[in-house]
Design a protein around this nucleic acid. Structure first.
Lengths: 119, 119
DNA sequence: TGTACAGTTGAACAACTATTCAACTGTACT
DNA sequence: AGTACAGTTGAATAGTTGTTCAACTGTACA
């Protein structure tokens, strides 16, 4: 019979050994935040559409804005977020900046997500 | 030489044929929203930790609250969101409700995400 | 040098979201 | 019936986030 240390949870621990065992296998604070931050990037319709477009071809900001019927500004803001998450790369050609996907994992993550949705 | 229909985008279309071709391959409005909504569920540290815990074993609300050092209430709110996304199932055993993962795609989605992060 | 235009950026606003709090439900046990 | 406790729920609050607007940068071209 062991008294638990003070828990923020306002209840008795029902399965103490299980909790301790799982606790040892939990990802660290930084990894959890990194995972959540990555999915947060995927969790916006505009960014999903940008990524879906870039699956087919590199495109400039103007192309994407036209395709999605949105302003260049909002597209540029979203591309910055995708850039920070290292999901897109860009190359400059004169006045035009072309964006393309920079990660081979995105396609399979999206495919798995589509599988879940259509089950 | 074709005049474009009015675009919300405040620019000339630079690559019109490309945009038209990609437009035909874009996912529909409902699919885009479904994809974004699913990733939005994954885009929160608390839910990432709940899912990470359930990878190892089914657990009751009290166990999860204790493991994450949070209140039963906040865990219950998050489990409702996971339930609505059809990512967890639950079974009642007396007073206790056990939750477990209800999707075989989650593991591979998370694995791909971890691969991206640690590249 | 001056104009045109693709793209970027910061601030502001509106919409959304996670946690807290309090009240509540449902089951077990006496 | 009454108590105890696991879990749920709705409202409120604080923090976050996407779009807009206006001003700006950088490159091409005359």
């Amino acid at each position: 019979m062991h008294k638990e240390k003070i828990e923020r949870c306002d209840c008795n621990i029902l399965h103490h050994e299980l909790v301790d065992r799982v606790r040892g296998r939990m990802p660290g604070k930084d990894e959890v935040r990194a995972i959540a931050d990555l999915f947060k990037v995927f969790g916006d319709p505009t960014r999903v559409r940008i990524i879906s477009a870039l699956f087919h071809s590199e495109m400039c900001v103007c192309d994407i804005a036209s395709l999605l019927d949105m302003t260049k500004s909002s597209i540029s803001h979203q591309l910055r977020i995708l850039k920070q998450a290292r999901l897109v790369r860009y190359r400059r050609d004169g006045k035009v900046v072309f964006y393309s996907l920079d990660d081979e994992h995105i396609k399979s993550i999206f495919d798995q997500a589509k599988s879940h949705i259509s089950e």
